[in-house]
Design a protein around this nucleic acid. Structure first.
Lengths: 126, 126
DNA sequence: CTCAGACATAGGCACTCGTCAATGTTGACA
DNA sequence: TGTCAACATTGACGAGTGCCTATGTCTGAG
């Protein structure tokens, strides 16, 4: 089963990030940077950050749009737009059940991003 | 109004990120999102991603602007601008020695970002 | 002191992005 | 069939961003 009917489209997906060694290990190629930047750009917005966090910490790890809208003083199309952005870069999964649409965080994609930024071994200071 | 020789200037710094539990653990507050987003936004640009990666993987972990410019087909002011953005959010340290300015990755700030995106325990697939 | 090199700042332009109101689409139900 | 509710899409507008050229500010050499 894996995916719902509508989200079989890869968009650009987690694959975009799961490609490179950590940022600090070796110079990123121009191509790699072009693939990774959109994913970070999707995250680099206060509303989308909160949306992703809200979805992730929701019961069962998924939330429908109606649950998310109440947390913001923004119009419904705006929330819908932000969710679309997060979905397009592969950070959010989308599944429609009846009238409701449920979003779920793709933890693998998020973990890939985290690994990219993580500092390998000798961090020393802190 | 140039900053002091070393980067004692707070700008907004690594502190902005080292504040919150992982994104997926509990809902991010609006304030936290507003602090974190600019740091991610600084990274969410292909040239800046490569710049940071270049600096990090350079000998001794630091690089002067002259070394970085040659890696891009961009004007010197553009590179300078991108470095400034990375420095302002606390991802890059700046130190002037003679005529040259050396940048160094703040690994603690980067690691904090990585920790924010990391998924705590049950990652499952990969 | 004068000059040249390394880097930063200023200002302008084209483009992208976040937001909204209006409208479209789809599924549940009477 | 008709109607309501949940989301998505469209189109427009102001604000922000990346790039450039031109100019400014240091610092070391001569």
């Amino acid at each position: 089963m894996s995916e719902s009917a509508s989200s079989t489209v890869p968009t650009l997906g987690a694959v975009a990030v799961a490609c490179c060694s950590p940022l600090v290990s070796e110079p990123l190629s121009a191509d790699e940077a072009l693939r990774i930047a959109p994913v970070l750009k999707a995250l680099a917005e206060p509303v989308r950050l909160r949306l992703l966090s809200l979805v992730a910490s929701h019961a069962d790890g998924e939330a429908c749009v109606c649950d998310l809208q109440d947390a913001f003083e923004l119009s419904q199309p705006t929330i819908s737009h932000h969710l679309k952005v997060l979905h397009q870069v592969g950070l959010l999964d989308r599944s429609k059940r009846g009238v409701w649409v449920y979003y779920r965080v793709r933890e693998d994609a998020l973990a890939d991003l985290g690994a990219l930024l993580a500092v390998p071994a000798p961090v020393a200071a802190r």
